[in-house]
């Protein structure tokens, strides 16, 4: 993941869709999504299995060890 290098000197680590990534301390959920999932539309975000409504992405500050899941729609029967 390209952005890991950018935040090499930060200390906060979160799990994003199953992968351990480093991210700027005090980063918001919205900043995280813009950085790692910029093209995705129609996605839902969960932190530690709790859904975070889209209007709260900006004000939601990530904490060290958070488990973030970004979920989208795929084909299915």
């Amino acid at each position: 993941m390209h952005c890991m290098e950018v935040f090499l000197f930060s200390h906060m680590k979160i799990y994003l869709n199953g992968k351990l990534i480093e991210i700027e301390p005090q980063a918001s959920l919205e900043a995280c999504i813009i950085m790692f999932c910029p093209q995705a539309k129609d996605l839902v975000a969960e932190i530690n299995t709790n859904i975070v409504k889209k209007e709260k992405w900006e004000s939601t500050v990530l904490k060290d060890g958070d488990i973030v899941e970004l979920i989208g729609f795929v084909g299915g029967g």
Partner: peptide, 19 residues
């Protein structure tokens, strides 16, 4: 029509079925 939901693959851009 039915669709499913899944964790987004951050490594590759997948087309959004809803489109």
């Amino acid at each position: 029509v039915t669709v499913a939901v899944r964790r987004i693959d951050l490594e590759r851009h997948e087309e959004n079925i809803l489109e």
